[in-house]
Design a protein around this nucleic acid. Structure first.
Lengths: 200, 200
DNA sequence: GTCGCTATTGTGGAATACCGCAAGATCGCC
DNA sequence: GGCGATCTTGCGGTATTCCACAATAGCGAC
């Protein structure tokens, strides 16, 4: 499941099959889900790709599914598909972060293009998230004391001042500082600042 | 014109007046424009507030006006209002960066709420832009050589290495470095890195 | 208890950064 | 030619960083 794919969630088997065939001819991998519930149950945060989500379905609606995904921190771009949408619904969905909102009947090529854009978009997100992930993983290896020292380093303070504020000796600060650089895999305070400021 | 206001662009005088009255009762300053052309002619990049833009108008349409504003780097949130919109139009507008898309007839309170949110949103944007502006203004005071040195500092290099790469003496690098810190109003390379990384 | 991790401190020295003062050279502008 | 901005360099000295080596102490896990 490391392969990016378009998750097609629709309770109409004929549509699922038609979309599967469509995407197959265009070289886009798909995975089919007969209901929002089924998808939510299987959903994993690290799945790459995008979601093509029908709004009107038996059981949980596409909008409810979207909300549930939001609550779980879903990052996959969601493309809504509906035959009975309206402007307020589309606006609300997009403002909540949906990737697109398209009405049936749609042009096949348009949908494929959208899905490809969404998958590419997800790729970028995923890359950025991975970068953040590695930095956070390194942060996680720091001890509490090391993090305290790091914070003060990031305020541009001298070891001397840090030693004062933490009421420890300068030598100790140096030791922590050295370990911080080591664990964060940077060679200077400047690199550290850039790495962490990039996280926002 | 330093006061944030809602720019109402509509070719129907009755609607303009009605909206002006509505916003006045809710304490939102407004400015009325009878056409997209009139607004575009007067438009200034530093106006704060938001835009309420009717789509169907004689002459230039709201959508065309929006495109023109995009091309000019407009930052004001745009709220589209229309009686004849459809889903694709709304989706396209939002994906291009419009703030909202609302259909007539609309609930007065909804529109006022939207406008207030948009103005608040613009305030935040403007604050962030101002921060970027001050940093960029400082950057602009740097000489070419100082910027070169700064770039190398931001790569975490020692003065010695920088001197080598630029084929100048270490003392010269120190002089530039000192002036860079001075002009950028920072006291350490760490602060500099944070200030510039925050710009993205 | 022993082992491993963490926090702590010290010594001593080499490498760098930082600062004030002074000054030569180039270049464009009036 | 004179003026101002910029780039350049050196001297001498202080402050800070960085590193290797060495060592003590607390604390939780097995």
């Amino acid at each position: 499941m490391t392969q990016a794919c378009a998750h097609i969630i629709d309770d109409d088997e004929a549509i699922r099959d038609a979309l599967q065939w469509l995407f197959k001819t265009r070289g886009v991998a798909t995975r089919l889900w007969p209901s929002a519930e089924a998808f939510l149950e299987a959903w994993q945060a690290d799945w790459p790709g995008c979601i093509v989500l029908d709004i009107r379905m038996d059981g949980m609606s596409g909008l409810e599914c979207f909300e549930a995904l939001l609550a779980r921190g879903n990052r996959l771009p969601v493309i809504f598909v509906t035959g009975h949408g309206d402007v307020p619904m589309a606006v609300a969905a997009l403002k909540k972060g949906a990737y697109h909102f398209i009405e049936k009947p749609f042009n096949d090529n348009d949908l494929v293009d959208l899905v490809e854009q969404a998958i590419a978009h997800d790729d970028e997100n995923r890359q950025a998230a991975a970068d953040r992930g590695t930095v956070e993983a390194r942060l996680a290896t720091l001890t509490a004391r090391e993090r305290e020292v790091m914070d003060l380093i990031l305020e541009g303070k001298f070891n001397k001042v840090i030693a004062d504020e933490l009421a420890i000796s300068m030598r100790t600060v140096e030791a922590h500082r050295s370990r911080v650089f080591d664990k964060m895999k940077v060679r200077s305070a400047v690199e550290l600042a850039q790495m962490l400021t990039a996280l926002r």
